[in-house]
Amino acid sequence: MKATGIIVEYNPFHNGHLHHAAQTKKQSGADVLIAVMSGQFLQRGEPAFADKWTRTQMAIAAGVDLVIELPYVYATAQASDFAKGGIALLDAIGCDSFCFGSEQGDIEPFLRSYSLLEEQRDQYEHLIHEAVQTGISYPMALNKAYIQLTGNADGFADLKQPNNILGFHYIEAARKMNSRIRPMTIQRIGANYHDPIESSTAIASATGIRKAFFEDKSIEELSVFMPEASVLALKRFKEETGSFGSWERFYPLLRYTILKERPESLKRFAEVTEGIENLIYEAAKIEDTFEGFIVRVKSKRFTRTRVQRMMTHIFTGFTWQQLRSFQAPSYLRLLGMSANGRTYLHHQKKKIELPLISRAASLNDSMGKLDIHATNMYLLGLGATRLKKEFTTPPIYFG
C-alpha cells in the first residue's frame, strides 16, 4: 500500500484542512493518508483548542487514515525542529511522499531555495549573524538574509509567508536526514493564517475560528467553516470541559508557576534567554490577564510566538537540559486509525522503523514520559480533577 503524509495541528479541523487532506491523497495517488499531529501544546506556544483525542476524531472522520502524535519536544519547537520531528515520523512509518499547504502552491521554488541556501550556507549564516546584531528577531533576521541572497528574484519561494516557511523547513529536514520521501505542495485556499472569519466563504483560518469562539460565537454559528464531525466533536469537548483550551484559561496556573520561582531560576526553562526572566517575573506580578502579560513581555526581539513558547515550557517544567537531551523521535504514538489505516499497519508492521505504541503505559522513555506529563498539565489547565485520561483513552477507531 502506498502512503502519503501530512504534518498538522488541526486546531480545530476545518474546511481548509479537509481540502488539504483530500487533495493530498488525490495528487499523490496514495492508498493511505497519514497525519503526524501535535499533541496538547502547539508550535506557536499555545495550549490546543481541544485535546488531541478530539482533534484525532475530527481527522479520522474527515478521511485521514492514521494519526500519529508529534511528541511535545517537537510540537512546541521552532519551525526547523518541528519539521525535523514530523518528517522523521513520516519517514519511519513508511510514507512515499509528504504534502504541505503553501501560499506558493508549487514545489519547484522550494527546491531551488533549498539548493541556493545549501550552496551559500557560510554566506547565509554570516548575513543572519549581522542581522541579529541589529536587534531584530531571529525569524526576521533569517528572512532579511534570505532576501539579500536571492535579491527577490523570481523562481524562489517567498519565505515571508507562514506556510511557505514551514514548507521550506519540511524540505530542509527531509534532505538533511536523506529521507526517501518525495515532497509535494498544494495551494492554500481561502483565508490566510491570521485572517478573521468572513461570512461570504466556507474557508476560514483556524486562528479566525478560535478567535470567534472566544468572542462568544456559538459552535452553530461557526459550523459553516467546519465539517459536521468537527462541529459534533467540539460540542462534546465543551460539554466535558466547560470551555476550550487557551492561555487565558491557563493563565492563573501559569502565573502561579512563574511567581513561585525566582527570576534567576526561570532561566533553566527551555527558550528562556538573554535576561528576559526578570521581565517575565515582573509582568506576572502586575498583570492579571494573559493578554496583558504577553503585551508587556513581547518586543521586536522577542516575538509573541517566542514568548508563548517560553511560557509553554515554564508551565510544563520543560528545561534546557531536557531539550538538549533529545536527538530524534523514539517511537510512533498511535492516536487513531480508520479501517484502511489498520490494514496499512498490518501490512507494514515488519517495516516500521520505530516502536509503534498505542497505550500510554508503554511510553517508558524520557520523551514518552514528557508527553504524559504535558497531557496532565493540559488537563489541569482545563480544570480537570482527574488526570488519568492519557492512560484510559485507547486509539480512536472508525471502522
Rank of each mutant, 00 (worst) to 15 (best):
I147S: 05
H194A: 15
W247P: 12
S179P: 12
A174I: 03
T273E: 14
I209Q: 11
I258P: 00
N164W: 02
H169N: 11
N163S: 10
I197C: 04
K176W: 07
E271Y: 07
L166W: 02
R262Y: 15
R175Q: 14
A173I: 05
G190Y: 05
F214Q: 13
Q133C: 02
N152H: 01
L259T: 10
A157G: 07
Y146F: 08
I189S: 05
I171L: 12
I219Y: 09
T134F: 00
F244P: 03
H169Q: 14
E248N: 10
A233P: 00
Y193C: 11
G135R: 02
A202H: 12
L259H: 11
A191M: 08
H169P: 00
S243N: 12
S218F: 01
I136G: 01
F244N: 06
A145Q: 06
P252S: 13
N192Y: 12
T207H: 04
L222N: 00
D195K: 06
A153E: 14
T207A: 11
P263N: 06
L142H: 13
D216V: 03
E261I: 07
I219M: 14
D195C: 07
A174L: 01
F250L: 02
N192D: 15
K238Y: 06
S223T: 09
A191T: 06
P196Y: 00
S199I: 09
R188P: 06
G242S: 05
T273F: 03
L159V: 06
A204E: 09
A153I: 01
D154E: 15
Q161N: 10
N163V: 06
L159C: 06
P183F: 04
L259E: 10
R175I: 12
E215M: 05
M226R: 13
T273H: 11
K211T: 14
T273M: 07
G245S: 02
I186T: 14
G208F: 04
S199R: 11
V272K: 07
N178P: 03
Q148F: 09
N152M: 07
L149D: 12
A157I: 11
L234G: 12
F168H: 09
A206D: 05
F168L: 09
S205Q: 08
S230K: 05
I181E: 12
R262P: 08
P227M: 04
K144P: 01
G208D: 00
F269T: 02
E228A: 14
P196M: 03
R210M: 10
A173G: 01
I136P: 04
T150D: 06
H194I: 10
T273S: 14
R255A: 14
E220M: 08
P162N: 02
F225M: 10
K211H: 14
S205Y: 04
A157T: 02
G208Y: 01
G167Q: 01
Y256P: 06
L254V: 09
A212P: 00
F168Y: 15
R188S: 04
L142G: 01
P139L: 02
V224T: 12
L234V: 09
